[in-house]
C-alpha cells in the first residue's frame, strides 16, 4: 500500500507540477528527439547548470517511462535531511550515490543493478551544477559504468538556458525557453578514455550547434 501511494504521489507530481513547469512555464526546443532511447536500460549524459536539468530531462520521456527514469544524484546533498531525502527518493526518484568513495564500497554498484532492471539513468558527469552555462570537466565515473555494461547506450544531451531560468544560489525561477540537443548514442568499452573523449567531443559539437544559434541561414520566405 505504501509502495502504491508513493508511486501515485510521484506520478501526480510529474503530471501536474514538473511536466507543466518544464513544458509550459519553460518550454523546450528539442533537436533530434528521435535519438532518445525508447526504453531502458540506457544512460543519459547531460551537462549540469540547474536543479531544473533533471526535471527537463525526465520530462523529455513519455509518462509511461516515469518508473524507469532515475536521476543519479549525490547522496550527501540530497539525503542531507529527512524531508529532502523523502522528496528526492520518492518523488523525484533519484538514485543516490556516494561522492567520496572512502570505505571501499563500490559507488557504482547501485547503478549497475538499476541498469540490469532496465532503468534509464540520468547522469551529470560534471558532478555538480557549477557556474551557470559553463561546462565543467567531466568525471570519468560514467565511462567506468559504461565499460561494465557495454551493451547499454550512452546518449549525450546538451541543455542550454536552464542556468538562466534557475541558476545555483538563486531561488527565483524566471521562465526561459530551454534548448535541448540530443546527440547520437555512444557505447562503453574497455578503453574508458575513448568513451570520455567521444562523450566530450559530442557535447562540444552539440554545444557549438547551439552557440551558432542555427547559423545565419537565408530567411524563411514566408516568415
Amino acid at each position: 500500500m505504501r509502495r502504491f501511494s508513493a508511486r501515485l504521489v510521484r506520478l501526480l507530481f510529474w503530471l501536474l507540477i514538473a511536466r507543466p513547469l518544464a513544458l509550459v512555464v519553460l518550454g523546450l526546443n528539442v533537436r533530434h528527439r528521435d535519438r532518445l532511447p525508447q526504453n531502458g536500460p540506457a544512460l543519459i549524459a547531460a551537462n549540469h547548470n540547474s536543479h531544473l536539468d533533471a526535471l527537463v530531462l525526465v520530462s523529455l520521456f513519455p509518462l509511461a517511462l516515469l518508473p524507469r527514469l532515475r536521476p543519479v544524484a549525490a547522496a550527501d546533498y540530497f539525503l542531507r535531511n529527512r524531508v529532502v531525502a523523502w522528496f528526492a527518493l520518492n518523488v523525484i526518484g533519484i538514485l543516490p550515490i556516494a561522492r567520496d568513495t572512502q570505505g571501499g564500497r563500490d559507488p557504482l554498484k547501485a547503478c549497475e543493478t538499476a541498469l540490469d532492471h532496465g532503468d534509464i539513468l540520468i547522469i551529470f558527469p560534471e558532478g555538480s551544477r557549477g557556474e551557470p552555462e559553463v561546462m565543467g570537466r567531466f568525471k570519468r565515473g560514467i565511462s567506468v559504468l559504461a565499460a561494465r555494461r557495454p551493451q547499454v547506450p550512452v546518449v549525450p544531451v546538451f541543455l542550454h538556458g536552464l542556468g538562466k531560468a534557475l541558476p545555483k544560489d538563486d531561488p527565483i525561477l524566471v521562465p526561459f525557453f530551454c534548448d535541448v540537443f540530443v546527440g547520437p548514442a555512444l557505447h562503453g568499452s574497455d578503453s574508458q578514455a575513448a568513451l570520455m573523449q567521444a562523450l566530450e567531443a559530442s557535447m562540444r559539437r552539440l554545444s557549438d550547434t547551439c552557440a551558432r544559434g542555427h547559423g545565419l541561414l537565408p530567411d524563411n520566405p514566408a516568415s
Binding site: 526546443n29 525557453f177 544559434g213 542555427h214 547559423g215 545565419l216 537565408p218 524563411n220 516568415s223
Partner: peptide, 29 residues
C-alpha cells in the same frame, strides 16, 4: 511587422525565433 522581426532575427544571427510551431518556426515568427 514581419520585417521588423526579420531585422531582429538578422541582428541576433538566428533563422527562426524558435521551433515551437512545426513548419512555421517560433511563436514570434
Amino acid at each position: 511587422g514581419d520585417v521588423n522581426i526579420s531585422a531582429l532575427k538578422r541582428d541576433l544571427g538566428v533563422k527562426d525565433s524558435g521551433n515551437l510551431i512545426p513548419g512555421h518556426g517560433g511563436i514570434l515568427d
